[in-house]
Computed example of a mutant assay.
Amino acid sequence: MKITFKDEALSELYETGKTKDRKYKQLCKNKKLVDGYIRAVSIMYRTETTRELHEYSFLHYERLTHDPRSSIRIVNGKVERLLFTETEDGVEVELIEIDSTHYGNKK
């Protein structure tokens, strides 16, 4: 699948494992999240269509109901998600959502 990154910081994070962008600076300190992000994007590169993402149950792929985007989880058991828009020729990765209140998590 063809993947384009809407944010240069996400591309840099995938290629090098770190970024200087302050938006994802906190994320870079958590090696488990960075490794999960790299693994998730690598799986997306290996698949032909987004339907094949259902085969990887730990990603919890879903099309968002009130949003034109889709999401996958970065790390199984965590709430951090990778949001992307599906296009005719692939996907456009938009952002990493680090909202800890998602899915009813009230820590």
Rank of each mutant, 00 (worst) to 15 (best):
M1E: 10
F5T: 11
F5R: 11
F5W: 13
K6D: 12
K6S: 13
D7P: 00
D7Q: 14
D7C: 07
D7F: 08
D7A: 10
E8Y: 13
E8P: 03
L10R: 11
L10D: 10
L10H: 08
S11D: 13
E12A: 12
L13R: 08
Y14P: 01
Y14N: 12
G17C: 11
K18V: 01
K18H: 08
K18D: 08
K18I: 01
T19Q: 05
K20E: 09
K20Q: 12
K20H: 10
K20P: 01
R22A: 04
Y24M: 02
K25G: 00
L27M: 15
L27H: 08
C28A: 12
K29P: 02
N30Y: 06
K31P: 01
K31H: 06
K32A: 03
K32E: 10
K32Y: 01
V34R: 02
V34H: 02
V34D: 08
D35W: 00
G36E: 06
Y37H: 08
I38V: 15
V41W: 02
S42Q: 13
I43M: 10
M44A: 10
M44Q: 11
R46L: 14
T47K: 09
T47Y: 01
E48K: 15
T49C: 09
R51W: 07
R51G: 15
E52S: 09
E52W: 05
H54D: 11
H54Y: 13
H54W: 04
E55W: 10
E55H: 11
E55F: 12
Y56M: 07
S57Y: 00
F58D: 11
F58S: 11
L59P: 06
H60I: 03
H60T: 04
Y61W: 10
Y61K: 04
Y61L: 03
Y61P: 06
R63I: 13
R63T: 14
L64H: 09
R69K: 14
S70M: 07
I72F: 00
I72K: 00
N76H: 09
N76C: 05
N76T: 04
G77P: 09
G77L: 09
K78M: 09
V79K: 01
E80S: 08
R81E: 06
R81N: 01
L82K: 05
L82P: 02
L82Y: 04
L82I: 04
L83W: 14
F84D: 03
F84I: 03
T85Q: 15
T85C: 05
E86Q: 15
T87L: 09
T87C: 06
T87P: 02
T87G: 04
E88W: 05
E88T: 12
D89V: 11
G90W: 10
G90R: 07
G90L: 07
V91K: 08
E92P: 00
V93N: 05
L95D: 07
I96G: 00
E97W: 01
I98K: 14
I98A: 01
S100G: 06
S100D: 12
S100I: 10
T101V: 03
H102T: 08
H102V: 06
H102K: 14
Y103V: 06
Y103F: 12
G104I: 12
K106D: 07
K107R: 14
